[in-house]
Amino acid sequence: MTVFTVFFIIFLLTLMVITALAIVQTKNLFAAAMLSGIFSLMSAMIFFLLDAADVALTEAAVGAGISTVLFLGALALTAENERAGTAGRAAALAVVTVITAVLVYATFDMPRLGDPNAPAQLHVAPWYLEKTPEYIDVPNVVTAVLASFRGYDTLGETFVVFTAGIGVLFLLGKAPVGQPKVSPAMTFAGKTGLRHYQIPRVVGRLLIPFILLFALYVQFHGDYSPGGGFQAGVIVAASVVLYALLEGEEQARQALPAWLLRLMAATGPLIYGFTGVACMLLGGNFLDYSVLAHDPVHGQHYGILVIEAGVGVTVTGVLISIFHSFAARGAK
């Protein structure tokens, strides 16, 4: 790390603290949502500088992209400003002070940033770096660990996404009793979108195929560079959000109907899970992709390809369903 990088990281970290304080301070929830998007972008930059490229890509797509869209969708249905202030401030501050003290106290025995002899660098991590070329043979070690060595965690993660999808559909699927007020901020929930604004419409429509192409690249190139099923799914969802913005919610819904999205949300986890079951039937352990082909390394390749596809399908289906659920709630 050069001195310049070090100062840049310090600068960004300080800026993040200031942004976080501003998020807590502002009464305007719209501003708070935007600021937390900016906060995520800054964390993504730091993650990138700290050699975590996959995380940086994901944080940028999720924190600055999807969660901002969700916040806007929810704010349009609730309220744009905080009414009441705080309660139990003294107690909260006391707890906060104690925990901060504990954490800062703990830091002084921590290994310094970048220390090659830190315990975290000595035990399991070098094994992954050393064995990945031999067992999995993909260039991106993060993908190897994520999809194979700790593939069971990623299975769980896929089901977390699936659970969230079920939850939002369950909670917002049924039409509300009363007529909720629609805020003008919810532009993407409008029936016509930006159809009357020619320039954004033309530019936007031109962009969508490229975004989808990029998503496919991220999906299938995850072995070689940062990316994978989750990031690809997020990018596809983003392109659908853009389409809904340009052409209106109705059009987007017709392009990808609700039943299809639900099917995708449910099929993705099944693809992942049954890959694991197939490994069992072929005589291996659950999720042991080595048995999927004659050559164990090829088996790993097939396995990773298939489960990444499962993740991508799940995330696409779930995120678009969630987006539609919020948007449709406003359009009624």
Partner: peptide, 11 residues
Amino acid sequence: AVGGWAAPYGI
């Protein structure tokens, strides 16, 4: 050993 990877490398 899930995935056939022995602990502590696998889950």
